[in-house]
Simulated scan of single mutants.
Amino acid sequence: MSVPSRPRVSVLITPVTLVSAGLSGCSSEQPDAPRVNPSGLAGTADAKLPGSVPPAPKPAGAPGDIRVGGRPVTGSVPSGNAKVPFRRTYTDGELYAHITGYRSMAFGNNQLEAIWREDLDAGKDVVTTVDPVSQRAAFDALRGRTGAAIALDARTGEIAALVSAPTYDPNSFSGYVTSDAIAWKQLNADAGEPLLNRALRDPHNPGAAAHIIVAAAALEKGLLASVDAPTRSPAVYSVPDGSVSFSGDPAHCTDANLREALRYACQNVFARLATDLGAETLAATADSFGFNTEQSNTPVRAFASKWPRQPGNAAQLALTANGLFDTTATPSADGNGDRRDRPRGELVPSPRGHRP
């Protein structure tokens, strides 16, 4: 039988995904602060970097801010409450909600607002790798839809954009009055789950995105000499026991090379390669890409992406290679693995090793 057509979930799987946020103090007077390539935006808020502005003076005791592209996307105003003297404000709250998280006087905090709470409370700014132009483009592309998008720097794995849709405005419940309680209740009752970070915590079958794992294994194990070598794949490939078959576009997928097979999502090619490589080899390659890593930090905790280590039969192995069966991933499939081509030394680590 042929594998039935099914809805696909667009998932981005990369060797490296996220970086720890850097910190800066309340002023820009930090001559010894680490400097990084501004395209990465993973370091201190240095006014000398393009697009960066000096931290604005804050009222005494006000928390630090979270910065995107060198500019704060959070702020604070007096709350009138002696126990919690400042209420958080958000610029473009819906745009950055699943990056900043929320900081509410009544309902706590999450995401970066929680992970860096100690430093923010000390007046320090958290600097992200997010590019505001990329973030806006991803946000606009998902407007009115349900899903997630992540854009990465392929050289470093730094996140340029992270969007989950639908989203929410953290301004709506950052205080402690009746309107905040109403907004919080509505968000939690919303069937669209706007508070769910789909980019980090909503695993699905990755579908054709899993093909890159199979391609990497085929090249690393010498099964294919290059991405342009033919794969000896019929237009319809049946697994050895004949229980299931996989097809691809005959014009592009018959004996396609890896370059074409990846371009046209040729299920027949990757099912055939999986049979030749075997479950153990594929699982090892998937592990090196960060699958089956239980604690994935971005620095926000992401749910683990799963790759079956021992599929029960040839059909399940071929389905796994096509991102089906028990293969699951989030759009930010973790990249804390040991890929040999992973760039080194380009990321500014968390100065205190904060983890959720």
Rank of each mutant, 00 (worst) to 15 (best):
Met1Ile: 13
Met1Trp: 12
Ser2Met: 14
Ser2Tyr: 12
Ile13Phe: 06
Val16Lys: 13
Leu18His: 13
Val19Pro: 00
Ser20Trp: 02
Gly22Cys: 06
Ser24Cys: 06
Pro31Thr: 10
Val36Phe: 13
Asn37Cys: 10
Ala47Lys: 14
Leu49Asn: 08
Leu49Arg: 09
Pro50Ala: 08
Gly51Thr: 11
Gly51Asn: 11
Pro55Met: 03
Arg67Lys: 13
Gly69Ser: 02
Arg71Asn: 12
Thr74Ser: 04
Gly75Trp: 07
Asn81Ile: 13
Ala82Met: 03
Lys83Thr: 14
Leu95Thr: 04
Ala106Glu: 14
Ala106Cys: 08
Asn109Asp: 13
Asn109Gly: 03
Gln111Cys: 08
Glu113His: 12
Lys124Pro: 02
Pro132Cys: 08
Val133Cys: 02
Asp140Gly: 07
Ala141Ile: 05
Leu142Ala: 09
Ala151Asp: 11
Leu152Ser: 04
Arg155Ala: 12
Gly157Cys: 05
Ala161Gln: 05
Ala161Lys: 08
Ser174Tyr: 01
Leu187Phe: 06
Glu193Ala: 15
Leu195Met: 15
Arg198Cys: 05
Asp202Cys: 09
Gly207Lys: 01
Ala210Cys: 09
Ile213Gly: 00
Leu219Gly: 03
Ser226Lys: 11
Asp228Cys: 06
Ala229Phe: 03
Val239Gln: 00
Pro240Met: 04
Asp241Gln: 05
Asp241Tyr: 06
Ser243His: 09
Val244Phe: 11
Leu262Ser: 00
Arg263Ala: 14
Asn268Gly: 02
Gly278Thr: 10
Ala286Leu: 01
Asp287Glu: 15
Ser296Phe: 07
Val300Leu: 05
Arg301Lys: 14
Trp307Gln: 02
Asn313Pro: 05
Ala315Lys: 08
Gly323Asn: 05
Phe325Val: 10
Phe325Cys: 06
Asp326His: 07
Asp326Leu: 10
Thr328Gln: 06
Thr330Asp: 01
Ser332Pro: 00
Ala333Leu: 08
Gly335His: 02
Gly337Cys: 08
Gly337Thr: 08
Asp338Phe: 10
Arg339Gly: 09
Asp341Ile: 15
Pro343Glu: 13
Glu346Gly: 12
Pro349Phe: 06
Ser350Cys: 15
Arg355Phe: 14
